[in-house]
Write a protein that binds this DNA or RNA. Structure first.
Lengths: 211, 211
DNA sequence: AATCCTGTGTGACATATATCACGCCGGATG
DNA sequence: CATCCGGCGTGATATATGTCACACAGGATT
């Protein structure tokens, strides 16, 4: 159950009244691992705050290929859904639950209200935006400046940070996230294993590299 | 000379008092084409609003290679410099004037003040952020999903939009912006010329393609 | 045990892009 | 005019990555 204290832990530094209003106005949704929270093109009617679990965000191309851009932890929010100056904006990204997750869904109409009513809210929104922005820049660095090998290493490191050093993931899934192909990923993983960075198992990867 | 009416034209929908304060607090700076406005790692002490000209934003890698991410027109602002919850943040991007430009430089201390004082200001900041964010996503699409040919076309189209259909630019400059090499760009341009999309001249490119 | 199915390994090949080497051209400068 | 230099064209080649074909292994199902 979600009470105000948990909310405070997850989203510190907000105003008292805001916590109450969040609980009052929002609805809690449970999603299972693998489920889609938000599709590209879907009209955004509410904003989502992550209470537990991990949510992965993807960019999609015309043919439906999915490119992983970043993921959201508990205590974070989908920045894009928090600001809709023009109502009926549609989503630019695809959001999927990586693990089972709980999200607090708040109808958009409160966004504008809270922006002016709670100073702490717009600060939250703005720092949220800024942080996501910086992640995007890092993502761009990875694609623009480095090869698949470094991108893969960066990807795995991020996953390990969040999920611990025994990743339950297939080579194919990694390939999809990086918009590459299974064979390429397999070969690169092989090289990394040879360097002693990790161990390859069926359906999982054991991470060893310390730095 | 910058008066309040020009300011209103460039940045519509702000509050009366804000325009006055902008002129009062800000300093106007003139920069020549090619000059650097902001270096990576430089501490941000003020925010910049573009009054005239075009400013290009780059991401830099360790070896100093510059990757073009987007550009700012008159009436836009460097989003990253507008929010500095933590003071003494350093810049994540490199900003260079593409043409001669005029910018309004406003010390950071006013940012927080204005955020709470002027509703229109934080709306401006937020929509600014959102727009830049969407541009970043498009940039990611271009690198992640498409080849050099499409990226080049996209790049040229954007330039033409802002600068008209006679671009004064060298192949080398394009290559730098796209983190590619001159030869590749030259060859691709050749193909596009063959398709009748443009004409190649020394130091310039004439754009023909309508859509 | 025999069969399937999914994940993985691997070689051969295609393609895009980067890099190198060199030559050419045209405008600027002496 | 002669020279130089920056911008451009072009072939040869290297490398990274994507693609195809197929083999294999291990767990699950029958």
């Amino acid at each position: 159950m979600m009470d105000i204290n948990k909310l405070k832990q997850l989203f510190p530094d907000l105003e008292e009244g805001l916590y109450n209003e969040m609980l009052e106005r929002g609805t809690i949704k449970e999603v299972k691992a693998g489920e889609t929270l938000l599709k590209v093109g879907q009209t955004i009617r509410s904003t989502m705050l992550i209470l537990s679990g991990l949510v992965k965000l993807y960019r999609e191309d015309d043919e439906g290929k999915e490119f992983f851009i970043y993921q959201l932890d508990a205590g974070q929010a989908c920045s894009l859904s928090m600001v809709c100056a023009a109502k009926h904006k549609t989503s630019e990204v695809l959001a999927k639950a990586l693990t089972d997750a709980t999200v607090l869904s708040i109808p958009l109409e409160f966004m504008d209200q809270w922006m002016s009513k709670y100073k702490s809210w717009y600060q939250f929104v703005i720092t949220s935006y800024r942080n996501r922005f910086e992640e995007l820049l890092k993502t761009i660095d990875a694609i623009a400046f480095t090869g698949m090998d470094e991108r893969l290493a960066y990807y795995l490191e991020k996953q390990v940070e969040k999920l611990g050093n025994n990743l339950k993931i297939t080579h194919q899934e990694i390939a999809n996230d990086l918009n590459s192909s299974r064979e390429v990923i397999s070969r690169l993983l092989k090289k990394m294993e040879a360097k002693g960075w990790l161990t390859i198992h069926r359906n999982s990867i054991g991470w060893i590299k310390k730095d």
